[in-house]
């Protein structure tokens, strides 16, 4: 009985020791995270204060530059108008991104597997990419069955190229000796693709995805500017234009704020996905060891 208690105590103190040693770097990590967050946060406070002071001191009319407070109020009161618009923009962006992802990867695999497919398709992918989307948008608006579809096509065209070109690059930059090794062991084309080329292309694909995520949002907004669509199904870009026409600048800022927020969210999401997939092996996700 006593032995058991002693043992218990031992194990307890052992546990405590372990926790203590573990919590020390843990705490240090939190402090360093807080430290890293503190500087941009202070900068934010500083900027908002400066903005408020400027508007207050020079008595700037709110239809020229609203105070941050007014923007916040507009965000709150106009939420019933802005929220559906945000939803539309989000839907277009993410649908376009998803199709771009599937299509870009599928096309990249096809091009990496067949030189004929690459020669046939790649130049046209490039042409589609280098022609400014604003210039093609009016045409797409004529041919697409609906404005929504047109916006989707525009966003897709812009988002799909970085995924395609990066993935092709990744699939082709496989270590030659590893390819030799696969050949030596009699690997099929399919095995070489799945076990070697695809994992090798993953960091490239993810870099493409990061770019595509941002571009999809930009394209969704630009296409909507070009379309100038109105009504129930319109997104944030239309609300921006509308606010400008009506000189409702606080709402314009609120819409802008939501767009930036969306962009940041997409950036953080793609970065996190990339980190999670690469953290075990790729240089980009690893800390330097010195």
């Amino acid at each position: 009985m006593t032995m058991a208690t002693v043992d218990n105590q031992h194990s307890l103190s052992g546990e405590k020791n372990r926790k203590a040693t573990k919590s020390l770097p843990e705490a240090a990590r939190w402090i360093s995270v807080a430290g890293r967050m503190a500087i941009p946060l202070m900068m934010l406070v500083l900027l908002i204060t400066a903005w408020s002071l400027y508007v207050w001191a020079f008595d700037v009319p709110h239809y020229i530059l609203p105070s941050p407070m007014r923007v916040a109020v507009a965000l709150y009161t106009d939420w019933p108008i802005l929220a559906p618009a945000l939803l539309v923009t989000l839907k277009i962006t993410f649908t376009a991104l998803t199709i771009a992802l599937v299509g870009g990867v599928a096309l990249a695999v096809l091009m990496a597997q067949s030189r004929i497919a690459e020669r046939a398709l790649y130049p046209y992918a490039v042409i589609l990419q280098v022609t400014p989307i604003v210039a093609i948008a009016p045409l797409i608006l004529i041919y697409a069955p609906s404005t929504q579809a047109a916006l989707l096509i525009c966003a897709w065209i812009v988002a799909f190229f970085p995924i395609l070109s990066n993935t092709v690059q990744g699939l082709k930059s496989t270590d030659h000796n590893l390819l030799n090794l696969f050949e030596l062991y009699g690997a099929s084309r399919w095995q070489t693709l799945v076990y070697l080329k695809m994992p090798n292309a993953l960091p490239y694909f993810l870099a493409g995805l990061k770019i595509a995520g941002g571009l999809a949002l930009i394209a969704a907004v630009v296409a909507e500017f070009a379309a100038g669509s109105a009504g129930a199904g319109s997104g944030l870009a239309f609300r921006l234009l509308e606010s400008q026409f009506r000189l409702n600048i606080p709402r314009l800022f609120a819409a802008l704020f939501l767009l930036s927020l969306t962009g940041v969210a997409i950036f953080l999401t793609t970065n996190t996905i990339s980190y999670l997939l690469l953290r075990k092996w790729h240089e980009s996700a690893l800390k330097r060891e010195n």
Binding site: N177, L178, N180, L181, L184, P199, N200, L202, K280, H282
Partner: peptide
């Protein structure tokens, strides 16, 4: 079996 000059391992 073949052993190359580089370890030629799959980093992932």
């Amino acid at each position: 079996s073949f052993v190359f000059q580089e370890p030629t391992l799959m980093p992932w």
